[in-house]
């Protein structure tokens, strides 16, 4: 499998002296669903800006499907679509006109542009809004419009900069389904997000960037395997007071309230051991869940390590 994006020693220092990127190396394989995570100001949007040629690097380079974006400007731009973090369409234009115009910029003949506009507006649930001015759309609809606009020339690579920011849970789930569908159909996707659950749910590979440097770059599975421990929350079927809890021998368990216990589970231990201890004590558990998002734990620990 060849690489969709190859970033080599990418550096960017802005005119005000801010060093946004300090030598980033990154490889994203074709058909991958890739997460680029990092705190605010880490350099994620600068990388996307450089790929889309809105930001000029001060060092290093980016190749899209093997072609340098600086020297093969026109060919590489046909290969990707970008969904920016902030809404950047004309609020006075109609929804369908925004997508049609973008199709025109990519040289699509009018009939094909119309067909694609309908296809993507329908897929993203915006066809009914095609004749309304874009400023009247809700926040979630504006995000979906930007996705439709980025897809109208059917790029091989789709770059999304926090596409679900400010979108309600139901809509976010439907956007996930849509993104998964286009990824399954062969489109490579690079995603930056603040919702770590989103990255864990969707992405196969991940890079964490902090202060302009990549501090982690591996598969999602191997990253999650690095978790030293996880905290499990047990919802009890019957009430249990702290006095009754104290009478049991439950090493590692904490009494949270009369219906909840918590236990820390090390990487070398199985959930079966937790169940065995609970069964031994004749404690019935209705359900069990992770206390916090696993990726969030890792993300925070990696950031902490990188700043130490």
């Amino acid at each position: 499998m060849s690489s969709a994006i190859s970033i080599t020693n990418l550096q960017k220092t802005y005119a005000n002296g801010h060093q946004a990127l300090r030598g980033v190396d990154l490889e994203v394989q074709e058909r991958d669903f890739f997460a680029l995570l990092g705190p605010n100001g880490a350099g994620k949007s600068t990388i996307i800006g450089i790929i889309s040629t809105l930001v000029r690097p001060t060092g290093g380079g980016v190749a899209v499907y093997g072609r340098d974006v600086a020297t093969h400007v026109y060919e590489t731009k046909l290969d990707f679509g970008v969904v920016p973090q902030e809404v950047n369409f004309n609020p006075f234009e109609k929804v369908a006109d925004i997508v049609m115009t973008q199709a025109g910029y990519y040289g699509l003949p009018r009939a094909l542009a119309r067909e694609r506009t309908e296809k993507y507006l329908r897929k993203l649930g915006l066809w009914d809004k095609r004749d309304v001015r874009s400023r009247t759309l809700s926040g979630g609809m504006k995000r979906r419009l930007m996705i439709a606009r980025a897809l109208v020339h059917e790029p091989r690579l789709l770059i999304l900069d926090e596409p679900t920011a400010g979108v309600d849970i139901e809509l976010r789930r439907s956007m996930w389904d849509f993104l998964q569908e286009i990824n399954n159909n062969g489109t490579t996707i690079i995603l930056t997000t603040h919702y770590l659950e989103e990255a864990e749910h969707l992405c196969r590979n991940i890079a964490i960037i902090d202060q302009g440097r990549i501090i982690e770059n591996c598969s999602m599975k191997s990253l999650l395997n690095k978790l030293d421990s996880q905290t499990l929350v047990c919802d009890l079927r019957h009430e249990m007071s702290s006095e009754v809890f104290a009478q049991h021998t439950l090493p590692g368990f904490r009494h949270v309230d009369s219906h909840t216990l918590e236990v820390d589970l090390g990487r070398d231990h199985d959930v079966n051991e937790v169940f065995a201890l609970l069964s031994q004590a004749n404690i019935h558990v209705k359900g069990m869940r992770n206390k916090s998002n696993r990726l969030e734990q890792l993300f925070l620990s990696r950031l902490k390590n990188s700043t130490v």
Partner: peptide
């Protein structure tokens, strides 16, 4: 920033 539509296109 709608000029970006044009600037990211070929």
């Amino acid at each position: 920033r709608s000029i970006e539509e044009l600037l990211v296109s070929p």
